[in-house]
Design a binder for these strands. Structure first.
Lengths: 136, 136
DNA sequence: GTTGACCCTCCTGTTACTGGAGGCTTTATA
DNA sequence: TATAAAGCCTCCAGTAACAGGAGGGTCAAC
């Protein structure tokens, strides 16, 4: 059993955030010490990690709650689970496209800069034809 | 010149959000009609699109402001631009890794569900050895 | 010439935290 | 063993980035 600080170190989530997730019932502490300190086990840390990634890609707390419940609710028809999960996956695919576009935009910016002191980096002109029309 | 509504349609950003970006000076309207209506040109729409993607991946408004200024400030040594841009790219690489992990987690969940009514989808057990140890 | 779709500003509300005060508990140190 | 530092608690206030809505002007169309 880990203290909240240890769980924080393991997941890279701030202590405050972990406390918040417990408070709103998203990822509850596994237990408490007699003094009232929160305790977390491996499984809670897994959930925290999962939530962290999902939150990073703009799944709301409520959506995270739903996804976690999919993982846990064995009484739920797997048909439902599959349907919901696939729709989330479609979202992630779009995210992946956008992430790729953004990365390209920044990479182009970095490449245009020779790295010397010449003060000229007018990248917006370059992709002003649109994010995906960068093959000129 | 586009109205705020047209800019909204072109960028898929809510009108409210575009108004907000103007208000905080992130992406200002190109001009105003005599009646005070905001006007946007192609370049503003480009910026809005860029900000949209950057925001989606958790760059703050202030970071977006900085990135946009890199694009625009021709008086800035390209050395600086390159340095800052590369550090943002490193962040994006981490995002990409996390996005991949999350996608894998959800895909595993979807695959485990045969899609019939059998109510058993205990995916957390499967990756409880860690997000990257899913080759069991 | 008025109806309906847009636009404006201003103000309040929401989500998901973040920081800090005030006050126990546990651990390291003298 | 005393005490100081570090860690934990609750509670409350603040922040970022919007979103909703009131109240009211504007513009194209019938």
């Amino acid at each position: 059993m880990l203290t909240i600080n240890d769980a924080s170190k393991r997941t890279n989530l701030p202590v405050k955030t972990i406390r918040y997730y417990d408070e709103v019932g998203l990822v509850m502490a596994t237990g408490r010490t007699p003094a009232g300190y929160r305790l977390y086990d491996d499984r809670s840390c897994q959930k925290l990690g999962f939530v962290q990634r999902a939150r990073q890609f703009n799944f709301s707390i409520e959506e995270c709650r739903e996804l976690l419940s999919l993982y846990e609710d064995h009484g739920r028809p797997s048909r439902d689970v599959k349907k919901i999960t696939l729709s989330k996956l479609a979202l992630l695919q779009r995210q992946l496209d956008d992430l790729t576009t953004l990365t390209l935009e920044l990479q182009t910016l970095a490449n245009q800069c020779t790295g010397d002191d010449r003060p000229d980096c007018p990248i917006l002109n370059n992709f002003s034809a649109g994010p995906l029309a960068s093959e000129a």
